[in-house]
Design a protein around this nucleic acid. Structure first.
Lengths: 119, 119
DNA sequence: ATCCCACCTGGAGCGGACTCCAGGTCAACC
DNA sequence: GGTTGACCTGGAGTCCGCTCCAGGTGGGAT
């Protein structure tokens, strides 16, 4: 089972080292193993969890809710229905964002057309 | 030419009064006329500008950039090409957001399917 | 006359999500 | 054996975009 240095995780996930430390501190990331001199060695599981975190974060989920999801995930398989519910609600939210952006984009394009017509 | 009370503008634009005052203070909103006792009376132009602001804000444009757009708008018609450029760039940005959200949404749906398959 | 309500001002405070800093450790390379 | 570089810690600071507050004014209803 391979492990990853901080630099590798930064490279792979796109999070800064400070952000990773912050996520660990607040419990969004499970405690990370250390080597003999105290440096972090991330696991495969950390990486895949960080993929999820990136997805949720980039779709606008607040940290508080990601924390809730993290707790459910740690609590065992009986929380899977709750996790499904949480993700479904979030998916709806993402869809709403998309629809909203598409509508606003229409407004912007109109404005551009108007400006073009005035030139 | 009709004017609008603060309460009416709040109602129509969905911004809070504090936000409107804040926008005026930082120059995102042109100085608002006052009645004899110092209360704001917004114009039709304010309302339509606020519509634009709402659109830009809700598509994630930072205030600094909205300010730049506001300045261009005040500077006269010769800035229309610049405004078009700014809006076009923003529209690209909005499209990128949409694409990104759609991709992330796929990831979330996959995760949901996976959870369902595990139940 | 008094009460309430909408509004005013300047300035402080807040919440979220980091981001930076000082001072220190260790391992490795020259 | 000295320097470099990646990393450590705890805690303070930053940025953005508001949001709230105290104290005050003016106008309309009872």
């Amino acid at each position: 089972m391979s492990v990853y240095t901080p630099a590798e995780v930064v490279e792979e996930t796109g999070f800064t080292l400070d952000t990773l430390r912050y996520y660990e501190k607040i419990g969004l990331l499970e405690p990370v193993e250390r080597n003999s001199s105290g440096q972090r060695r991330f696991s495969e599981e950390h990486l895949s969890w960080l993929g999820m975190v990136r997805c949720l974060r980039d779709t606008g989920m607040p940290i508080a809710q990601m924390l809730r999801f993290a707790e459910l995930s740690r609590a065992g398989d009986h929380t899977i229905p709750d996790r499904i519910k949480l993700l479904e609600e979030h998916e709806q939210h993402v869809q709403a964002q998309i629809d909203n952006l598409a509508a606003r984009r229409g407004y912007i394009r109109n404005k551009i057309s108007y400006y073009r017509s005035v030139l």
